[in-house]
Design a protein around this nucleic acid. Sequence first.
DNA 1: CGTCCACGTCTAC
DNA 2: TAGACCTGGACGG
Length: 421
Amino acid sequence: MPEGPELHLASCYINTVCAGLIFSGKVEKSEVSKNPEVLFESDAYLISATSRGKEIKLTLTPLKEEKNTLPGRGKDREGLSQNGLQQPMDIVFRFGMSGSFKLASGAELPKHAHLRFYTKESPHRALCFVDIRRFGRWEVHGTWQLDRGPCVMLEYEKFRENVLRNLSDKAFNKPICEALLNQKFFNGIGNYLRAEILYRLKIPPFEKARTVLEALQHRKQSPDLTLSKKVKLKRENPDLLELCHAVPMEVIHIGGKGYSPEPSDDAAAFEEWLQCYCVPGMRSLRDGNGRTIWFQGEPGPMAPKGEKSRKRRLRVNADPEPPSPKVTKPVPTRSSKGSSSQEKVAKRSGRKKGKEPVQGAKNVKANEARKPNARSRRKASTSQESPTSEAPAADRKRQASDRRSTGAATAAPRSRRVKAE
DNA sequence: CGTCCACGTCTAC
DNA sequence: TAGACCTGGACGG
């Protein structure tokens, strides 16, 4: 679920579904989670949420000044004042690769629900932190992580200043595509957003970040224009930092959960929204950290040497007109869903995935449309399109950033899996 | 069956 | 700058 928009949508979800809901009792953690216990207990409390970049903060607020009557009860709780009252508590979450929140029936909890807040009502329900891969973290009495910058969505001006005032930072020695993932400056940007943002401006992903950003420092605007003209100009020609705000805002306005595996009208709309990330016909490379960057056109001067540009036939995304990025696209305000779903699907499956050749084209066997949502994988991993690459095969070490080594190490994990959740 | 891949941090050489 | 941390879907044999 998790780049900035997904975190923000999660906070909206929580505030919506928990509005007027009263929670009660203890907070329950799954056995398998290595995150800290949440020693909070109250007879009646409320839950609200706020987000900042890729973090979300839940606030638990006890309702009345309920006294802790039972002796001994809650002795191990945190946040108790001297007289035994449960104080409000903040918990800050990061979502890892798969975190999300869901209000579910207390009787049948979702799989991988690692933290549960139960409602007071008779058939209990539970607000659950669901996290399949368990890369997510929470901190009791948490605060926004100190070395993360201002939120690209909710603190745009501060975010912009923080970048432009610190261009001498070594973070900007890196390629722009890598700098965009640095949460110290781009809190909220993740892998699909960086691709979509760079694509809108056709900035080569491996252009040096400082080079790209220095150009924005003194955007001299002709002083003779009227204010409204300036505004219009700006809206129609957003620069990179403006897009770091506007692009994630587009996702928020689609609604739903943003990037999510759960099928829904909104999920379909999101897929439709993607113009570059995982889109057939786009190129991709591994960046310096082994993450896949999707782009179109030239990789740029700092591109990893000897890397192969793989084209994949992936998803059955839309992507109507070929390569022209729609920079200004007005916010697609939540429309009457319901009917839209059907036509969307029809539309998309009927769509040819447009443009074709991207350089070394090769014999890329075009995307045979898979079923929607199917992110078809692979084509050539080690067999890459070698001929074009100037690098000897030996050089491409398989960036295994997210992989368990094969071979000897596999036995252990296997057995651990047994202890299901 | 096995391999590769995924929306992200973390921390240990 | 490699791994580590995890589960599960897609695909290949």
